[in-house]
């Protein structure tokens, strides 16, 4: 990763990604004039589905894995830090992040596909995502994290795994779970089905299980 962090710095702000996708705004496609934001912004899934070519949803790179994924986070659900170097000019031009992370695509300089953000509408990227500019801690910490959700949380053999994480800021399933930049262990092979939450429903691991009783 160290190598990559220096590489993009040299590259500057040019179009790093060879975008697989067209240039239409992400909000295109959903029925206009409907209320927005309800059902955990469910329209995002349909929009992403509509505008992502099948090849981009089924492409597989396999270089990102859960190890590196959690390696950038402090606890399950924390905003990941930025693993590559960024030119200072990016700081006041957040759309420069979106140019790669809005839709993904291959970044020749990093020899990797850019992960896609599930919430491209939040353009103040640096509000939550920060780079690492120093290796050493100020002082050592006694911080400990809980375990990340186990994989394959199917209720029975072959049944669709539940959604182990809250949907807040993670509404767009296809962004993270499909395409070449998806983390290998959580990548789905059937993103072409389109209506993700018809099979996968939330069962948040950090919340108590509810027992049904009359």
């Amino acid at each position: 990763m160290k190598k990559a962090e220096t590489k993009i710095g040299r590259l500057g702000i040019g179009f790093a990604a060879i975008c697989l996708l067209g240039a239409a705004a992400l909000s295109a496609g959903a029925a206009p004039d409907i209320p927005h934001g309800f059902d955990w912004d469910g329209e995002k899934i349909f929009n992403r589905y509509n505008e992502t070519p099948l090849s981009a949803m089924t492409g597989n790179d396999g270089t990102r894995n859960l190890n590196s994924f959690y390696g950038l986070r402090q606890y399950p659900g924390s905003p990941p830090r930025i693993p590559h170097a960024i030119p200072p000019a990016f700081a006041d031009e957040p759309y420069n992040c979106i140019s790669c992370h809005g839709r993904g695509g291959y970044v020749a300089e990093l020899q990797a596909y850019a992960p896609v953000t599930p919430h491209p509408e939040n353009e103040a990227c640096f509000q939550c995502h920060v780079p690492r500019r120093a290796e050493e801690l100020f002082v050592e910490t006694d911080w400990q994290s809980i375990n990340p959700p186990a994989l394959g949380r199917s209720q029975l053999g072959g049944s669709p795994p539940t959604i182990p994480h809250p949907l807040q800021l993670r509404e767009d399933c296809i962004a993270c779970h499909a395409g070449p930049a998806a983390v290998a262990e959580i990548r789905v092979e059937h993103a072409s089905r389109g209506n993700c939450r018809q099979c996968h429903v939330p069962l948040i691991v950090t919340e108590p299980v509810k027992e049904f009783a009359r």
Binding site: G62, T63, R64, N65, L66, N67, Y70, G71, L72, R73, Q74, Y75, P76, L137, T141, W143, Q144, S145, I146, N147, P148, L151, V183, A184, E185
Partner: peptide, 23 residues
Amino acid sequence: MTMKLDRRSFIKSAAATSAIATA
């Protein structure tokens, strides 16, 4: 600094280099 507990257990269980093999 990362997720301490898990990093350790991950490293233990996921010695394979390729992510697909890890899965």
